[in-house]
């Protein structure tokens, strides 16, 4: 059984039909990469899974449970974390407060916290700093740390490399690789070079529809498909 299943998911935002037919089967474990051009519907897909925009009834199941129409907070409590494109950190709160908010009981599991310190040493260094004072890369680290401070089954991450320096992107890739050992990641990314090093399975979305799904290895090998779906130059 798939961890997450999207079946002909449709999402309207106001009068606009943004997603027409998103069908995906997300296996458990590893990184699943969702690629696509600007405006193709990648962010809308993640937001629809989280219930931030309402998808068509019955179109989203998580561990066999229909979650379309559920409140966002209830979806989160099922074990799905969300790292939005704008990172969604609380600038007026300290690093510690940002993280403690993401814990169920308001207390840290020291083992998980140590793991975060290992992945992102900046979190320990800037523990008492207000989040607005962090750099872009540190903010992204905080957003990802918040998603893993508690055990989750699935993390939805939206374009985490956008605007980051190459060294930070590399560190982020290493962190995702380690996190994906015990947590499934659905990664939306436009940086194909970054995505191809991480993804085991992938799909391409265009104009609100999934137009290709398969393994990353096959997709990397098919230059013609890459060019036609992503508009990449040879």
């Amino acid at each position: 059984m798939s961890l997450l299943s999207l079946k002909q998911m449709k999402t309207d935002i106001g009068q606009y039909h943004v997603l027409h037919d998103v069908t995906l089967e997300l296996p458990e474990g590893g990184v699943f990469v969702l690629l696509g051009r600007n405006g193709a519907g990648k962010t809308t897909t993640l937001r629809s899974i989280m219930g931030l925009w309402q998808p068509s009834p019955g179109s989203v199941t998580f561990r066999g449970q229909d979650i379309a129409g559920m409140h966002t907070s209830d979806i989160a409590r099922l074990g799905i974390a969300y790292v939005p494109e704008n990172m969604g950190i609380f600038g007026g709160l300290t690093v510690e407060e940002n993280l403690v908010l993401a814990t169920k009981a308001g207390k840290f599991d020291q083992t998980r916290l140590n793991r975060i310190y290992e992945l992102f040493p900046a979190m320990e260094k800037f523990w008492t700093k207000q989040a607005w004072s962090l750099s872009g890369g540190q903010k992204q680290m905080l957003a990802v740390s918040r998603a893993i401070i508690e055990p989750r089954d699935l993390i939805l991450i939206d374009e985490p490399t956008k605007g980051l320096a190459p060294s930070i992107i590399h560190a982020m890739g290493e962190a995702f690789r380690e996190i994906s050992v015990d947590t499934t990641i659905l990664l939306v990314e436009q940086n194909f070079n970054f995505a191809k090093s991480l993804g085991r399975d992938m799909a391409v979305i265009d104009d609100g529809r999934v137009v290709h799904a398969g393994t990353m290895t096959d997709f990397i090998a098919n230059q013609e498909l890459q060019d036609s779906l992503l508009g990449l130059s040879a």
Binding site: S73, P84, G88, F90, L93, L101, A102, R146
Partner: peptide
Amino acid sequence: RAGVENREMVEALGF
């Protein structure tokens, strides 16, 4: 305090 800044994200954390 978090909700004042970004209520959508607070809901995405399960509240």
